[in-house]
Simulated assay, not measured.
Amino acid sequence: MSYDWYPPSRPRPVDGGVRARSRRGHIGQHWWSARFIEGLESIGVGGRLSRGKRYARAGQVVELRIDAGAAVALVQGSRARPYRVRVGVVAFGKREWAGIEQALAADAWYTAKLLAGEMPPDIEEVFAAAGLDLFPAGVRDLAMDCSCPDSEVPCKHLAATLYLLAESFDDDPFAVLALRGRSRDELLANLGARRGGTAAGAGSVEAPGPPPLSEVLDTFYTAPRPPAGPSPAAVAIDSLLDQVPAGGIAVRGRDVVELLRPAYRALGDRAATAPPPAER
């Protein structure tokens, strides 16, 4: 039963509110933004969505904050005090994120895309393999609350918040993951640690500086002795091709990596048999 009986009202104008960039049509440019909002639009709740979209474009959202497990907003309506809006999702626990990070770190493709600030197109499959959903499938997967008197969920204030939340993912796809409980810095640091290095933007430990000159005067003018160590292990000339992500370009039904491998090996054989360069 619908209780949408409130008479039309004009919202109070907001100075400096959060305004959607999209002026018409769909809100959200990237696939991950559209993926978040499609569940809401699929249920078809009458004019609330269209009014919420108008609110988002008019800048009626005073403030929007994204935290682990929830997005909180203030939305100005017709009353003097803005309405308090909260959109909650389930944040994954430490054990669940450990499994996700292990799967992401196992494939350099995911790490490279995330470091570039992009959401990998098939990242949902990684979560699905762990029995998790990255994006809500509909309003039933969201805990939504608004302090307005409208008893319908979502109301136009909630809808405006959801649209702006989806558009914010265009600017920062890591906000999708932050809602599920993992910030950008935490995720990249954990991926870097699992891959045996430090991911960009995750912070690093500063290397110690040189010792004071007073402590090395006895050896300062001594020619440095090269460190003793084992000779580097031989590396196959075509080993670089093993780093190319699987599922790449195919030429006449054959993977381009396998087509290039004989050429790499031929170049390696020629380099091995070539005479050393003459000394000058």
Rank of each mutant, 00 (worst) to 15 (best):
F127C: 09
D133A: 14
P120H: 05
A129H: 06
A108I: 14
G138K: 01
A108H: 13
V126N: 01
I123D: 02
D133H: 10
L115D: 13
L114P: 00
D122F: 11
A129R: 13
A116D: 15
P121D: 11
E125M: 10
L134G: 02
E118P: 01
W109T: 11
A108K: 10
E124M: 10
G131N: 06
V126R: 00
L132E: 02
L114I: 05
P121S: 11
G131R: 04
L132C: 07
L134S: 03
G138F: 03
V139L: 07
Y110L: 01
E118I: 06
A108C: 08
E118D: 13
W109R: 12
V139T: 09
A129P: 01
E124C: 12
I123S: 06
A128C: 04
D133E: 11
G131K: 05
W109F: 14
G117D: 05
M119L: 15
A129L: 07
D133Q: 07
F127I: 08
G131Y: 06
P120T: 09
A116N: 12
P120D: 06
E125P: 01
L132Y: 02
L114T: 01
F135T: 04
L114C: 03
E124K: 05
A112P: 01
P136S: 11
W109Y: 13
T111I: 14
D133W: 05
G138M: 04
W109M: 11
Y110N: 00
K113Q: 13
V139W: 01
M119H: 08
W109A: 15
Y110W: 01
G138A: 08
A116Q: 15
P136N: 07
A108G: 13
P121T: 09
G131M: 10
A130P: 00
E125L: 14
G117K: 08
G117T: 03
D122W: 07
W109S: 15
E118L: 15
A137K: 05
A108W: 10
Y110G: 00
M119K: 09
A116T: 05
D122K: 13
A130F: 04
A112T: 15
D133N: 10
A128M: 04
P121H: 09
F135D: 03
L115R: 13
P136T: 12
W109E: 09
T111W: 05
F135R: 02
G131E: 07
F127V: 09
D122M: 07
G131L: 11
V139I: 10
G117Y: 05
L134C: 06
A137S: 06
A112N: 13
W109Q: 08
L115K: 13
L114M: 12
Y110V: 00
A108E: 14
A129C: 05
L115E: 15
V139G: 07
A137Y: 02
A128K: 07
A116W: 03
E124N: 09
P120W: 02
A108V: 14
K113V: 11
A130M: 05
W109L: 13
L132A: 06
D133M: 06
F135H: 09
L134I: 08
